[in-house]
């Protein structure tokens, strides 16, 4: 069969004695021929400007997850030893340990998000002012407020003597605060108490505690990142903070509805100037010559 078609094709070529397309036969050069005189030639679309088909990328529903079997993991004390070496000479309250928790999760859908009060707060520069009736002042001061009172505090604010960077107001003092006309001073500083920011409260104790210790964490691109300690923390303190964050995270993940599944993928400890170490969940250092007590000297 194949041989006959080939034969026919060659025969057809032989029979085409005249050119397939009519050409302008004249003595004038080809480029002088007006275009109207030229026969209408429609060029075939083959080749030339045809667009290449765009390769379709496979869309992944989940964030990329790596094979963690070959990854070197470290105990908490080992990671701390390295990080303390990298951070040597940095002020210990400025440099922070940070935890990155990678989750196995879909790219879309609900995210893990919560506030947590760590056993050892990372932020220590929170200074709270409390506007409250004078009889509650002593209690507020005991909770750690640096400035308390009602009229005395208003006077101090008017004089520009602002020693706090967070201001809360007891519900009973709300009217007094309104009368004091401090919006012009406190507003631009973002210190004006309002119910919207939950800084007007009837339970001073709970609010102060939340302001001092609570930190927010939230999942972004499948990773929860949070500062979990200052460089000056002892291994025990850091371990307590890490544990409390992890249990809170697990609690949050369990609370999500059944249609979304999230699982822990990787827990990584890093620091402000240091590299990142995957943790393996153990605490003790692997080097026998080192004990956790060695890792709490002054930095």
């Amino acid at each position: 069969m194949a041989s006959t078609t080939r034969c026919l094709a060659s025969l057809a070529r032989l029979s085409l004695s005249a050119p397939a397309r009519p050409t302008v036969v004249s003595t004038i050069p080809k480029f002088l021929v007006p275009s109207v005189a030229a026969p209408f030639v429609r060029h075939a679309g083959a080749g030339g400007m045809r667009k290449k088909p765009v390769k379709k990328k496979k869309a992944y529903k989940t964030f990329r997850s790596y094979d963690m079997s070959d990854v070197e993991t470290y105990s908490l004390c080992d990671a701390m030893r390295y990080l303390r070496a990298f951070e040597v000479g940095q002020p210990p309250t400025v440099s922070k340990y940070e935890l990155h928790v990678k989750l196995k999760t879909n790219k879309s859908g609900p995210v893990v998000r919560n506030r947590i009060i760590l056993p050892f707060p990372v932020k220590t520069d929170t200074r709270i002012g409390v506007i409250c009736p004078e009889e509650l002042a002593a209690e507020a001061q005991q909770l750690g407020a640096v400035a308390v009172g009602e009229e005395s505090l208003f006077q101090a604010i008017r004089e520009g003597n602002i020693r706090f960077n967070k201001l809360i107001c007891h519900a009973d003092s709300q009217d007094a605060l309104k009368k004091a006309n401090l919006g012009k001073i406190l507003g631009p500083k973002g210190l004006m108490p309002s119910a919207k920011t939950k800084t007007i409260t009837s339970d001073i104790k709970a609010t102060v505690k939340e302001l001092i210790g609570a930190d927010e964490y939230r999942e972004r691109n499948g990773v929860v990142r949070m500062a979990v300690g200052q460089l000056g923390f002892t291994p025990k303190m850091l371990s307590d903070n890490v544990k409390s964050l992890m249990s809170s995270l697990k609690h949050d993940m369990a609370k999500l509805d059944d249609s979304t599944t999230k699982a822990l993928d990787d827990v990584v400890l890093s620091s402000t100037h240091g590299p990142a170490f995957s943790l393996n969940g153990t605490f003790a250092p692997t080097d026998e010559a080192i004990t956790p007590e060695h890792l709490q000297s002054v930095m």
Binding site: Y82, A85, V88, G89, Q90, H294, L295, S297, V298
Partner: peptide, 22 residues
């Protein structure tokens, strides 16, 4: 010296306080 040698010293002698005052 602080950037190059001190981290190594700190790694091998974690218990020794090394304080830098700039």
């Amino acid at each position: 010296f602080w950037r190059e040698a001190l981290p190594r010293l700190k790694f091998w002698n974690p218990a020794v306080p090394m304080v830098v005052n700039r």
